[in-house]
Nucleic acid binder design. Sequence first.
DNA 1: ATCAGATAGGTGAACGTTCACACCGGGCGG
DNA 2: CCGCCCGGTGTGAACGTTCACCTATCTGAT
Lengths: 346, 346
Amino acid sequence: MAQPKKAASIWDVARLAGVSHQTVSRVVNGSPRVAAATRDKVLEAIAELGYRPNRLARSLAGGAAESVTVLTADTSLYGPEAALRGIEKAARALDWSVQISVLDPADTHSDADIIARLPRAGEPTIIMAHDEPGMRAKQVLLDQQPHAMVAIGPYTAEELAASPWLVGMDDGKAAAEATRYLLDLGHATVHHLAIPTSTGTFGGGKAHRAEGWARVLREAGRPVPEPVPSGWTIAEAFKAVQPLVADPEVTAILCGNDHLALATMRAAHLAGRSVPGDLSIVGFDNTPFSAYTTPALTTVNQDFESVGRGAFELLRHRVDGSIPRPVPGWPEPELIVRETSGPPSS
Amino acid sequence: MAQPKKAASIWDVARLAGVSHQTVSRVVNGSPRVAAATRDKVLEAIAELGYRPNRLARSLAGGAAESVTVLTADTSLYGPEAALRGIEKAARALDWSVQISVLDPADTHSDADIIARLPRAGEPTIIMAHDEPGMRAKQVLLDQQPHAMVAIGPYTAEELAASPWLVGMDDGKAAAEATRYLLDLGHATVHHLAIPTSTGTFGGGKAHRAEGWARVLREAGRPVPEPVPSGWTIAEAFKAVQPLVADPEVTAILCGNDHLALATMRAAHLAGRSVPGDLSIVGFDNTPFSAYTTPALTTVNQDFESVGRGAFELLRHRVDGSIPRPVPGWPEPELIVRETSGPPSS
DNA sequence: ATCAGATAGGTGAACGTTCACACCGGGCGG
DNA sequence: CCGCCCGGTGTGAACGTTCACCTATCTGAT
């Protein structure tokens, strides 16, 4: 009974119902030109055999693509994870299936390796291009099948306008806003603990959060300290931020994301510096936990899920030109002031 | 050039190389019975046409399955997310592809809906069965294709032994250990803020963490307070835990996961109760952030990634009996004592 | 009566691959 | 020198769908 007996096909149903395979196909796909009596017979046969349509065959036979592959490097980051959720929801609603393939952050994947991850040539693909492997995958896909790929990443409004295959939020503006907020609070300057992308070491990877931050400092005529580079993990951030929290001159740190901010809070605590009394800390992304740390984290909210949804819609448009190009619509990143920021103590 | 011109097939390569389609297939699949000269001709043709094999067709033609679908309800939970990562890594290593389908936590999915998510009948499937939608999906798949599914969930050693399609960690034991630890510290009793599964309201959902906790209290002859049910989100937990932190009699709380623990820490702080002075808090899962909260969270480490890997291996075994049944091997859940736990203040 | 047009349904090819098997030539043991 | 085996290759069917096109039957207006 638990034996893997072969699954019923459309032909089995057809035979049992006494109709042609095509008629079964029509019933399954809800075609209107089927007599009610016939439809019932077919449905009955379907139920009896436990027939379920085979999606692979369906796609093969030239039906719609109905499948996206998501290439990402790190699913444990809040941004990509939320974007993936957005993609999945949007895809689900249209009955598309979602494949996921995780790029190894350590490995430099060959072009062939990246291509081999796609189930077929021309597979619609969304790439999380926020780090090195993602950037590389983006480049490869852009060469191979520019019309069937979309990349999500941190880009400025100009870049987004210039590249029709790009989706992202201009978080430089939000970084600027956060920096200005800290300056207005009375801080002499603001330091920056940067996520890897923002160090600008990747091909094509610009440092938007860092740029927005630096711009405001320059405009305000403040010293622009060297950004402190951190890895993506909390442990790396904890290590990287040590010199910053040890320096009493440092009174405000803008962190590249909330994980880095958490590490900074921890480091500050261990260094005996009170937050926000001695040190103001601002995060980025509004990760779910950030409202519940003690003190609660001041951060920048970003709606990654909407970005994911937008990427999916854009992809559909690019794969099938007949679908109207979506207007990218989601809330701007927005500063959320909570408890880790305040005026300097002096 | 960016026109989506049709992709090259095995036939195109065959024609260009002047061989049969079967020979191309052999080259692509690395069959040894191809003359070196022929192989080179074919490889050249492949390069020239930019041919990439079509996985859909490959599976259709009766080749190996080489594809898993993961059904999960909440990718933002650390456990499922880490397990998914483990599955993906293991699958990747064998060149399998991974599909993901997210069940709506709010919606009660019909059987048909759940089945419709699978790309084909008999699709190998892994279900994250830690919540209601997951439990339901598990049941449906168990009816439909018991030999091509595996469920991951919180189960006792006995259940795991009894159900050959189950993978999980016996976290009841770890919960017991944590409870005993708190008792040994001198607490009169330990309260429990429970994750949804542990409330036992789901069909088949047992309350292992809660059971382990209750058992130790009973064995020690301590009062067993009513577990406080919480939702999965931090916000829900924050609300649910209010009465607990408000009660000065409560000196120790075992939380169902680290998110709930974070909410409890926050609530305690706002209620003016110091941690661990007035209140000891123990979490569950060792979520990455938990080592960096202030104070750092005492919690139970669980290697979900290994569980994911184990689920994948078990699935392979079940789908293809010729593969040896893997011995589930991963580290036992283990208590990690950090800073949120200590002796009661009295 | 007849014929256009709809309605219901069928037929065969195509999608890109693998599998089972048949074929051909040459080296080797008898 | 015959037959056998084996390396190397081709042939045709199968996988489960959809698509394009064709054929009946029934309706109602001419």
